[in-house]
């Protein structure tokens, strides 16, 4: 993003009204570009643009960081900002199981993982 005087401002310096601490986003949480994100047009910030393109198929936060070549903490902030703006969706596996056992302690999830591994 550009400041009014034309200087380039690192977007992760801004807080933008995020609703949760970015550290709460699991490294394996899947990020996918929403319809709004697909029709957003080229984002002026190249890293944001790359994330929006990359996540047309869902990618984990860790993959985003690795493929876009940015530290994990920066990727988390950018993903959280894009989520706040409705441009990506973050499927956090822990949030999805809120109130019940998290997926890693859910027997039916573990059975599916085991069976999937055996089929490889």
């Amino acid at each position: 993003m550009a400041a009014p005087d034309g200087r380039r401002v690192r977007p992760y310096l801004a807080t933008r009204g995020r609703t949760r601490p970015v550290q709460d986003i699991a490294i394996e949480a899947l990020v996918s570009t929403t319809k709004d994100g697909r029709t957003h047009g080229a984002d002026p910030e190249p890293e944001r643009e790359r994330i929006l393109r990359l996540c047309h198929s869902p990618r984990s936060v860790a993959e985003v960081a690795a493929i876009v070549s940015m530290p994990l903490g920066v990727a988390r902030v950018l993903v959280a900002d894009l989520e706040t703006e409705g441009l990506v969706r973050v499927a956090d596996p822990h949030a999805a199981f809120a109130g019940s056992a998290e997926p890693a302690r859910n027997l039916s999830v573990l059975e599916r993982v085991r069976d999937g591994l055996r089929r490889l």
Binding site: A26, I27, E28, A29, L30, S32, T34, S57, P58, S60, R89, A91, P93, A96, P103, A104, V109, V113
Partner: peptide
């Protein structure tokens, strides 16, 4: 999308484990 779409957008509703 996530609540209503069911199987049609399975890729968007994927669960990730590690």
């Amino acid at each position: 999308d996530s609540e209503v779409s069911g199987g049609t957008q399975a890729d968007q509703d994927a669960l990730s484990v590690k």
